[in-house]
Amino acid sequence: MTAATKVLVVDDSALMRKALKTMLLDAEGFDVHLARNGEDALEQLPRVRPDVVTLDINMPVMDGLTCLAEIMRTSPCPVVMVSSLTERGALVTLEALELGAVDYVEKPGGTVSLNMRDAAEELVDKVRRAARARTRTGGLAARLRRAREESFATAPAPRSGTARSAGAGSARGEVDLLVLGASTGGPALLSDLLAQLPAGCTAPVLVAQHMPQSFTGPLARRIDASCPLPVQEVTGLTPVRPGHVYVARGDADMVVARRAEGLVVRPAPAGPSYRWHPSVDRLVQSAMEVIDPRRVVGVLLTGMGDDGAEQMAELHSRGGRTIAESEESAVVWGMPGQLVARGGATRVLHSDDIPAQLAAWL
Rank of each mutant, 00 (worst) to 15 (best):
L8Y: 03
D11H: 12
D12H: 08
L15D: 14
M16P: 01
A19D: 00
M23W: 02
H33N: 13
L34Q: 08
L34D: 07
R36M: 12
A41S: 14
Q44D: 05
L45T: 05
P46G: 13
V48S: 12
R49V: 14
R49T: 15
L55A: 10
D56T: 06
I57S: 07
N58M: 14
D63F: 04
G64P: 02
G64A: 09
C67P: 00
A69H: 05
M72A: 07
S75P: 01
P76T: 10
C77D: 01
C77E: 02
L85N: 09
A90N: 09
L91R: 15
V92D: 06
T93P: 07
A96F: 01
L99F: 09
A101W: 03
A101D: 08
A101K: 07
S113G: 11
S113I: 12
A119T: 08
A120R: 13
D125Q: 13
K126R: 15
R128G: 06
R129V: 13
R129W: 08
A131T: 11
R132Y: 07
R136A: 09
G138N: 09
L144F: 08
R145V: 14
A147C: 12
R148H: 11
E149K: 13
T154M: 14
A155Y: 09
S160L: 15
G161D: 12
T162G: 06
A166N: 09
A168K: 10
R172W: 06
R172T: 06
E174L: 08
D176V: 01
D176P: 05
L177H: 04
L177D: 03
L178A: 10
L180W: 02
S183P: 10
G185P: 10
L190C: 10
L194N: 05
L194W: 07
A199T: 14
P204L: 11
Q209W: 01
Q213K: 12
Q213C: 11
Q213V: 08
G217A: 04
D224C: 10
P230F: 11
T235E: 13
T235I: 11
G236H: 09
L237Q: 14
V240M: 05
V240A: 07
R241Q: 14
R241P: 06
R241T: 14
V245S: 07
V255H: 05
G262Q: 06
L263G: 02
V265I: 11
G271W: 12
P272N: 15
S273M: 15
W276F: 15
R282P: 10
V290Y: 11
V299A: 00
G303E: 00
M304Y: 00
Q311Y: 02
M312H: 03
A313C: 06
H316V: 01
S317H: 10
I323C: 01
E325P: 02
E327A: 12
E327G: 04
S329I: 01
A330F: 02
V332N: 04
W333Q: 04
Q338C: 12
A341C: 12
R342T: 11
A345K: 02
A345N: 06
R347M: 01
V348L: 07
H350W: 07
S351P: 03
D352I: 07
D353A: 09
D353W: 03
I354S: 00
I354C: 03
P355G: 12
A356L: 01
A356C: 02
W361Y: 05
W361S: 02
